[in-house]
Amino acid sequence: MKLIDDMISPAWRGTYTLFKKELFRFWRVAFQTVASPILTALLYLLIFSHALEGHVQVYKGVQYQAFLIPGLIMMSLLQNAFANSSSSLVQSKIMGSIVFVLLTPISYLQFFCAFLAAAIIRGVLVGFSIYVVAIWFVDLPITHPAWILAFALLGSALLGTFGIIAGIWADKFDQMAAFQNFVIMPLTFLSGVFYSIHSLPPIWQAISKFNPFFYMIDGFRYGFFGQGDISPWISLTVVTAFLLVLAWLCLKMLKSGYKLRG
């Protein structure tokens, strides 16, 4: 760590320090921020795979247990990327300690990069940990690693950005909880974590296609099995477009000082 510290140029040291602080912040409470989502994902795996194994075959030649794992990894990755930036921001706003960052020369773009990078790291770390634990129990192929990596990074970036927006907007913890329970959770559960949208009635299939989480999970799953509900290129386009729109909105909020600088 000290070696990296010395390698960073003074111009980027502010951004790097904020990123490092955000990493340390979640790592200090790793039991809650890393271990707990891993356990939750494994419980989902245990319960759903036992309940539905033999009843559901989603893709030809793919066990339901194996089908489930990429969805669970992506779900946890997305939720944790969101939680990292949103909870850090709302907490430091309520505690007042956000002022220590706002008083510094760190620009709005650097602020965005630091929070985003930390959110990506936490999302990917949680996702990777679930993968490492899950492959002890289930045989999981990796057909296209580049797609897996692309969707893991884009997904965590998208939700990390969304988390920054939510963190800036929310003034209270219950507003943040509402975001998590009424936006993130339904979008995740209705995105195909536990099923293929082809198993749904046509109307629900059509509705699912308006859910950006569906594209992240489907594209990610394609990387494992080489098959999905739609082409990974379409998913990549949709996810990238969503990311760009949210990043634009987030940078606009940060630049204007919305709810941060009066």
Partner: peptide
């Protein structure tokens, strides 16, 4: 100090 570009 790091936020202000100061290192070790």
């Amino acid at each position: 100090a790091g936020y202000f570009g100061r290192g070790r």
